[in-house]
Design a protein around this nucleic acid. Structure first.
Lengths: 285, 285
DNA sequence: AGGTGCATGATTGGATACAATTTATCAAAC
DNA sequence: GTTTGATAAATTGTATCCAATCATGCACCT
């Protein structure tokens, strides 16, 4: 429901930014058909439909919802995790400001947080783009996950209350319905939330935050490196894990988590650290 | 992209080096600071009159240093880690803006990052204050450190090159001189940097970032919970660790790191899980 | 005297205006 | 036809401005 309108060739610019930096030339070559300025400001149909009046007028006439920068951050993050904003997409401040009916200030704040968490990458005077983690960074993320999450699973298995198990089961049910109802873009954030929920149940506030970052980065990695057919978050790893937790079988929970993460990582196509392009960038650094 | 990667040869490397240099200069020089005008009460009206031409005038006549928001963040963070800004200190935007000779905008950005990392805590419409982690949060931080850092030490021990060992030794020398020259407030960030350096040598860019957060939080925790006499980062834990790394004794390195962290944590007075708010109030008393 | 409400000051939250920079476009020269 | 220079457009970066909010203190009423 967002930007796909007949604006200035948006999908094209989205694609063109995929390889940030060196690929500008290539990108411009691929987008030669795009820049039709004829459809300039006439895109006001969208704005007119939802929130045509300016801020002043809006305040005077009708209070339109003004999301906080937290909500904006949340919305953008969700869009990224649902693969609606693929890596390389530029997050243009003014555009987002209009979409959310706020000023650029709040959008900048939200984007700043994304950049801080390396979900987006800022290029000075150019803009912020949804990050494209390198395969090395992807390996780093999974190394951290294999390091942290089995211990988390063990910890939760040792102290899990029936209520907590019920929470986990409820989440798994959500995953199941999303999967069976064929909503693939909802599965990815849901699967991530399962791991975050586990961190929450462990009660360690710092690791909850860390898991949030890891999960959002993992979502990006899956888009970039997923083998087409492989299904990343497989059938019933999560239910089995909850079974072990319910049985307070800490060792098995940790083991299952480790296997689960290994399975996800191995279903990706992470090439060895070759990276001609990366070397190119380092040269100009 | 990432500003943390030690081995990811990117723009990050250059930037990183610059940052380290700047931080060192701050630490040694103590900077600052002609407190500009003592005429704080002169209101924004007059300021506006003089400020508008300031940009051009300053450039024309004399280039006053205009730190980036990165540098501002760095400086505030250093001040916090050196215990110059204790927990509970309000970070007043306009005051800092004057100190750094920038507008509030950049300061806000820097403070926003501190809040995001929970180094500072924002109270809506009131301001941002240096955080006072609860004892529970302190335990969470040390749990995470015990979870992550022994593995980091093991990893570095397995793959350490002579150059890397030399880096570690050089850092230990800095710690030693700071300790013997009786500069206690320099010891704390230096000790933290040792652990960050270890993460950098491991080559995992994500864990470098995580360690940064952990170390800055640890600095706050030490201020709040340190037993007066106990010396947190003891005598020669770090040198022994480097010895083990140099000998490629991975198990011993991991074990030493774990003991080191346990020692630091046990030298704190973290009461059993009660009364986070009570601690908070006592701090502000 | 003591509590309650209102004015005041200080500070943040948010929006706008403007400057700086980069990219794209186009015309002219070779 | 290709290259090159100038110019325009788009976008970010920064400063300033105004409104909203909270604390403080003073006056006023009981």
């Amino acid at each position: 429901m967002n930007q796909d309108g007949a604006r200035t060739g948006k999908a094209a610019t989205v694609k063109e930014a995929k390889k940030v930096g060196a690929a500008a030339k290539i990108a411009s070559g691929t987008t030669k058909t795009a820049p039709v300025k004829a459809t300039r400001k006439t895109s006001a149909k969208k704005e007119a439909g939802t929130l045509a009046p300016r801020t002043r007028a809006a305040r005077a006439t009708k209070e339109v919802k003004q999301p906080s920068s937290d909500e904006i951050h949340e919305r953008i993050m969700s869009a990224i995790m649902e693969h609606k904003l693929p890596p390389g997409t530029q997050l243009v401040e003014e555009r987002l400001a209009r979409i959310f009916n706020v000023s650029r200030t709040k959008v900048r704040e939200a984007i700043g947080r994304l950049v801080h968490d390396q979900i987006a990458t800022n290029i000075p005077n150019r803009g912020a783009f949804v990050s494209s983690p390198t395969s090395q960074e992807a390996r780093d993320v999974f190394f951290a996950r294999r390091l942290i999450e089995p211990t988390l699973a063990r910890s939760v298995a040792m102290s899990a209350t029936p209520q907590q198990v019920a929470q986990l089961r409820a989440h798994i049910k959500r995953e199941h319905t999303a999967r069976s109802s064929g909503a693939p873009h909802e599965i990815i954030p849901l699967s991530g939330e399962f791991h975050i929920l586990l961190a929450q149940l462990s009660g360690n506030s710092f690791l909850v935050r860390t898991l949030r970052e890891l999960e959002s980065l993992t979502a990006l990695i899956i888009i970039l490196y997923d083998a087409p057919d492989e299904h990343h978050c497989p059938y019933d790893d999560h239910p089995l894990l909850v079974d072990a937790i319910e049985a307070h079988d800490a060792d098995r929970a940790a083991e299952l988590m480790l296997r689960h993460l290994e399975h996800v990582e191995h279903s990706l196509k992470l090439e060895p650290p070759v990276a001609g392009e990366i070397d190119l960038e380092s040269v100009f650094a």
